[in-house]
Computed example of a mutant assay.
Amino acid sequence: MGHRGHKLGYEHLRRHDLRHTALTWFAAAGVPLHVLRRIAGHGSLTTTQRYLHPDIRKITAAGAALSAHFSALRAPRSLPGPIVMTR
Rank of each mutant, 00 (worst) to 15 (best):
L66V: 06
P82D: 13
H12A: 09
S71T: 09
H20L: 06
L79S: 09
R37Y: 04
P82M: 03
D17L: 04
R57Y: 11
R38F: 00
A62R: 06
A75G: 02
A27W: 12
V31D: 02
A27D: 13
G9H: 04
A40W: 05
G30S: 04
M85C: 00
E11R: 09
Q49T: 07
R50A: 13
H34F: 09
R14I: 07
L33H: 00
P80G: 04
L13A: 10
M1H: 06
T47R: 07
P80R: 10
H20Y: 01
H20T: 05
G63T: 07
H3L: 15
M85D: 11
L13D: 07
Y10T: 15
H16E: 15
G43Y: 05
I59F: 02
R19G: 01
L45A: 06
L45I: 07
L13S: 04
D55I: 03
R87D: 14
A72H: 11
G30Q: 05
L45W: 00
A68L: 10
T48G: 10
I56Y: 12
I56A: 15
L52C: 08
H69V: 01
H16P: 01
D55T: 02
W25G: 00
H53Q: 11
A65T: 10
L79K: 03
A68S: 13
P32Q: 14
L8Q: 12
T47D: 02
G2I: 01
W25M: 10
L18W: 04
H53A: 10
H34Q: 10
G81I: 00
T24S: 15
H42G: 07
I83K: 12
L52R: 06
A64D: 15
H3A: 12
G5C: 08
L23S: 04
S71I: 08
I83C: 08
